[in-house]
Design a protein around this nucleic acid. Structure first.
Lengths: 219, 219, 219, 219
DNA sequence: TCATAAACGAGACGGTACGTCGAGTCTTCGG
DNA sequence: CCGAAGACTCGACGTACCGTCTCGTTTATGA
């Protein structure tokens, strides 16, 4: 779930992960998220995180290669905690619970899309999310990690639910579920990114309606 | 077309735009774009741009408030040049030509979507575009400017073409053309951003197909 | 007189000395000397000097290669000022005034040796002098500079005065004036260095007596 | 002979000296001397010594308060070994053997002064000696220890030999033997320190000649 | 047509943060 | 149960850029 695997990834001496201070790790995550929320990503410095966490700078550089990596880990940790709190921690600990399948495709998707909207609007997530997205846009390696750890798992849930729907005959047999998933999520992300129009439940519902219309089986 | 309007916007003494050196302006744009392409946005510095352009640092700070603003202007300038080269410089110089209306909605949209794909895949645009998007994600003011100057005009073209189609009866009268426009462009942007799947003409066509199916008038 | 000649000595870009801020230079000297006196050399940091002088660290590193070099310059400056204050600024500005020649060798030497004792006992000079001597002991290049700029000129004065005395027949014609000069100064320096016995005028006089006895012309 | 007496000197828990590893002690001395000789005092670090000695850092800090103290001990140990090798280890283990008294004062002094010159020129001793002297110059406590343990015993030998000579009538009865001792040793130390002129047997002989001339009894 | 005021190149300045190094302390584990 | 190993906090290092501020040097009107 985490990214701090310097085992073989980074050059130089490899620190002994078994001796790592969990106390410091937590403090660093808390400090990083707090600072990004309070002052924005650009003004958040490694030095600041260390000071706020009551930790030596070296303890950060020992375990992460960059500010962005710290934040990604902190964010993943946050997400993991959230899932755990939901009592839905299933399977291999990968966390996310998937999309419910009540038999009513529209209702199920509406539920998760609205949840996504709420999350994107939550200031607690907004700052860090923007920071990560920005970093991922600009640095390919980091972006690859984000896509793999955050984005694709998310899309996979949609794909699975849509596949189930296709088997149930709820959507056209020739529909491309991957594309359908992207049609559902991308517009929300774009509104969030552009910031010029409100990102609301109503908007999510409208997107859903249009997409489902295109997926419905022909008579 | 450009953003350098310190006339009333910035505090302090206003430089006399009429005496501005066009030579320096061009050199700064070229240097900025080159450096972003070559070394990435993060490693591009104002000092570096100035050195490469053979220009004093102050000449940059005199006309732009930040590295991002320079790049945005450089990018807009690049786009303007591209449009001019196409011989389509119409109207007030806003440049973009809009979406052709041949009567065949699918064909028209396919054309522009494919062009968008090509542009996103062009390394000349990729670096600066990512840099700008990243900056916009993280700094609201800058993002607002980007949305207003780059994104919304783009979406507006889709909206206009789709409205025309609706009047022609090519799509359902109750379709929300704004949402339709977002459904068309957002998935492409997302693929470009995620970087884990190829962004191809075929993909654009598939997205188009799915969206149009949802828009088609009911019999 | 000063050491800051990066013209050809240091690698990288050479700063333009003509644009140098005299204000900063003075502030750095003052801060450096004050800190060394107050807290000792080891606890004096470049960062501390910069802060105390109200100067950016880079402004120090731009002009000096190390803490020790700053201090050497500060010290030379101090000495130059002292000489200037004495109204004895003669010749090429090298400052030092030489040893008086009243015709009475013993009296002349006693005068300067006692002055040296006073200087070594002056807390204002003690700290910086020890710091410089320590640095010179350990780093050959720096030591060479010190010897050349501080020590040898000093010895040269004694040598000149002794040569005059030899010509006057005040000391044996076969006496080695260089060695005599070293015999006069080295014991004082050693007492100062060892710190376990007081360095007094009486001591200087006693050394002088013994040395002169060895130099006196045989009857 | 050694300095490691944390018994009452240092705060905190006193380690049990009886269980101390002689193996580690030796390894630390060897490593310290080797590193100082090879890379200089400033670049020698406690971490480096520990690594080279195959010893934990704590094992050094348990027994010595500072890098300089380690080196002083190592140096004293080296000197003790040298004396032992000469088979002259007499008395309380203080080591040094004193100056021979063959009846020929000049010859005896020449012998030890030349030996001193050789020692100062020996690269094995040069590095550590400079390091210790530098530290002693700058930190009074350490300097006091050095003076007491290294310098004064040395001078005492000269004083004793000169007193014997005075009793034998070889030098003037009113000569100050302490000052004479300093006149003999200080110039050598100074040449070694200044490094700009060769420190040779001839130089030692010349110093000796001048000093003895001053000491000789008046006819 | 030239005087003069501006924009310009250059780059030193006071700062902030970087990423690294070592000091000295504290904890864990193996012989 | 000592000692190697090494992670920890702390603080300074020397570097890179930031954005501001002079410096002469063009340059391009407008008197």
């Amino acid at each position: 779930m985490t990214t701090d695997k310097p085992d073989a990834a980074r050059p130089g001496k490899t620190p002994d992960a078994s001796r790592r201070s969990e106390r410091s790790r937590r403090a660093i995550f808390d400090a990083a998220l707090a600072l990004v929320s309070e002052t924005g990503y650009a003004k958040t410095t490694v030095e600041g995180i260390a000071a706020r966490a009551g930790v030596g700078k070296q303890t950060i550089y020992r375990w992460w290669p960059s500010k962005a990596a710290v934040l990604l880990d902190a964010f993943l940790d946050l997400a993991a905690q959230a899932n755990e709190a939901l009592g839905r921690d299933v399977g291999d600990g990968e966390g996310d619970a998937g999309i419910p399948d009540t038999g009513d495709l529209a209702a199920d998707l509406r539920y998760v899309l609205r949840a996504t909207v709420d999350e994107l609007n939550d200031p607690k997530y907004d700052g860090p999310t923007r920071a990560l997205a920005a970093e991922g846009l600009v640095s390919p390696d980091f972006g690859a990690q984000m896509t793999e750890l955050l984005m694709e798992p998310q899309l996979a849930h949609y794909v699975r639910r849509l596949e189930a729907a296709r088997e149930d005959g709820d959507i056209a047999p020739d529909a491309d579920v991957r594309i359908a998933a992207e049609l559902l999520t991308a517009p929300l992300a774009q509104r969030w990114q552009y910031r010029d129009r409100p990102l609301t439940h109503a908007y999510a519902d409208a997107v859903l309606t249009h997409v489902l219309r295109g997926l419905s089986p022909r008579p």
